[in-house]
C-alpha cells in the first residue's frame, strides 16, 4: 500500500500561533507538489488551553487526514506532552522549548530541547515563537525547501510584521547550532 506518509504535530496552547505555523508549512509543502492535510484540536476558549496543529503529508492523496503516528513533534507547552506522547513513532524527531516545556519524558526519540521562546524574546516578541519553531523544524527535518517556506511566511504575514517573522524564521534555522555552541541546548539523538 502507498505509505510515504509523514505526520507532524505542533503542540502547545491556544494563542501561540500553532495553527498559523502549521498552515505556513502546509502551504509550502503544497506549493512543492505534496498532498497535505492539516487539522487541529482546540478548546472552545480562544486563548490558553491545550491546542495542537497537525499535518499529514503524502505524495498521493491523503486517505486518513488525522495523525496516528507522529514522525515529528514540536512542543511549545508542557500541556502538549500528554496527548502527543502515545502517538510518537520510535525514533521520531522531537523539538521542545526549554522554558515552556522544561521536562521531557524518556523514550526512543531524537531530542532537541531548544530555547525557542527565548530566541523569540531576544528578537523582540515572544509571539514569534511559533515562527522560530517552524524554522527549527525545517532546519532539523529538511521536510521542506527553505525558499518555499520563506515564500509561505511572506504570503501569510501582514506587512508590518514581515521583517520580524523573517528574522524569527532564520533564527529558527540556526537555533540548534547556536544552542549547541553555547551549551544552551540538550541535544540527544535517540537510539
Amino acid at each position: 500500500m502507498q505509505d510515504a506518509r509523514i505526520e507532524i504535530r505542533i503542540g502547545g496552547t491556544g494563542g501561540q500561533g500553532l495553527i498559523l505555523s502549521a498552515k505556513i508549512l502546509a502551504d509550502a509543502l503544497a506549493a512543492g507538489g505534496k498532498h497535505v492535510a492539516q487539522s487541529q484540536t482546540y478548546e472552545p476558549t480562544s486563548r490558553g488551553g491545550y491546542c495542537n496543529a497537525d499535518l499529514v503529508i503524502s505524495d498521493g492523496e491523503v486517505d486518513f487526514p488525522i495523525t496516528t503516528a507522529l514522525d515529528q513533534l514540536v512542543l511549545l507547552d508542557r500541556l502538549a506532552i500528554k496527548p502527543s506522547w502515545p502517538l510518537l513513532k520510535p525514533g521520531a524527531l522531537v523539538i521542545a522549548d526549554t522554558r515552556l516545556c522544561p521536562e521531557l519524558p524518556a523514550g526512543n526519540y531524537r531530542r532537541y530541547h531548544l530555547p525557542l521562546s527565548r530566541t523569540a524574546l531576544e528578537l523582540g516578541s515572544e509571539r514569534v515563537t511559533n515562527i522560530v519553531a517552524l524554522g527549527a523544524l525545517v532546519a532539523l527535518s529538511n521536510i521542506c525547501d527553505r525558499k518555499r517556506i520563506e515564500q509561505a511566511v511572506r504570503a501569510e504575514t501582514p506587512r508590518g510584521f514581515l521583517d520580524l517573522n523573517m528574522d524569527a524564521l532564520k533564527a529558527g534555522y540556526a537555533v540548534h547550532v547556536q544552542a549547541a555552541a553555547g551549551n544552551n541546548a540538550e541535544v540527544n539523538v535517540g537510539t
Partner: peptide
C-alpha cells in the same frame, strides 16, 4: 467538525 476545519490540498 474534523473535515469542516481540516485543510486539504
Amino acid at each position: 467538525q474534523v473535515i469542516a476545519q481540516l485543510s486539504e490540498t
